[in-house]
Design a protein around this nucleic acid. Structure first.
Length: 294
DNA sequence: GGTAGACCTGGACGC
DNA sequence: GCGTCCAGGTCTACC
């Protein structure tokens, strides 16, 4: 079965898929040559869908290798709209970006959408796995997590969904730690899974929260393992751009861009983009930095 | 509110 | 092969 969905223009499938490293984290799998993104989606019923998503003229098409009913089809569409931020209206950001040479490409390349996982639980776990480590380790920890605790597709045991909170609760923090190499992050992930599985924490509700961004940030930072960087990253994924996910790389970028390579503090990064208001995070994310690396 | 030290892992490096 | 050091955010205790 094939589903086609339109996005608010302008839209670029490739710009969205390659907006950040999420595409390298299972269950995402991107075939650059074919321009096709694979993902294993778990529906509320527990049914697993193997998705093959491609870009179309102004949107996406998703091939699904399963027979599903109308209700499931609507749930699938809703998940796809969320994951690719198809309903996001970036015109106000582009209007501002036109006046900034360092953001000259954003409208032409339809930058601004940031690939999301199907659930906020999955995105928070992945974000915790990005903290205090190098990207290679993040990919490894996430792979081990999915390989060991994700549910496999009935017809392909090599393709697995992201583990459910319930499954991770069963595993327990000690085994989680020893089997995935996530170290001291294991109790954070386990505690989050426990809160979600028990119903104490409604993460999916936060996707459409009407809370002001600073309040939403506080909510996210109540989660153990989510500090200011992780909260900034998650806010970006939630479509809130008033904070910058300041990590060591951000400090380097801003240091070389405006402070001649001298050390800067997180507040200097925020200050550099203060004039961008609600688009602060987007301006930071898609800025054409002078500094390219060590 | 700001700061120091601990947390954990993998990789680089020296021996 | 082994030991040491370092990078990467967050938490906790303390001032």
């Amino acid at each position: 079965m094939k589903i086609t969905l339109k996005a608010k223009p302008p839209f670029s499938f490739e710009s969205t898929v390659r907006s950040h490293g999420w595409v390298q984290l299972a269950p995402f799998k991107y075939d650059k040559e074919r321009g096709e993104l694979e993902y294993v989606l778990r529906l509320k019923s527990g049914k697993l869908l193997h998705l093959f998503v491609r870009g179309t003229d102004g949107g996406i098409s998703a091939e699904v290798q399963a027979q599903i009913g109308n209700e499931e089809k609507e749930e699938l569409k809703s998940s796809l709209r969320w994951m690719f931020a198809l309903d996001l209206d970036l015109r106000p950001f582009y209007a501002r970006a036109r006046k900034e040479p360092k953001l000259a490409q954003v409208e032409e390349k339809a930058y601004g959408r940031i690939l999301r996982s199907a659930t906020l639980f999955e995105d928070i776990v992945k974000t915790i796995l990005t903290t205090n480590t190098v990207w290679r380790s993040t990919v490894r920890m996430n792979r081990l997590l999915v390989e060991q605790y994700g549910e496999p597709l009935p017809d392909d045991s090599h393709r697995l969904a992201f583990p459910t909170p319930e499954r991770l609760v069963e595993v327990g923090p000690e085994v989680l730690r020893s089997s995935t190499g996530m170290g001291y992050r294991a109790p954070y992930v386990w505690e989050l899974a426990l809160k979600v599985a028990s119903g104490d924490l409604d993460l999916e509700g936060l996707k459409s929260s009407s809370l002001p961004t600073p309040e939403l940030r506080k909510e996210l930072m109540r989660i153990k393992g989510v500090g200011s960087y992780a909260a900034g990253n998650l806010l970006m994924l939630l479509g809130r751009y008033d904070f910058i996910p300041v990590d060591s790389w951000a400090l380097k970028l801003v240091s070389h861009e405006w402070h001649s390579g001298k050390p800067v503090k997180p507040r200097d990064v925020e200050a550099a983009f203060a004039g961008w208001g609600e688009f602060k995070g987007l301006a930071y994310w898609f800025w054409e930095w002078s500094y390219k690396g060590n």
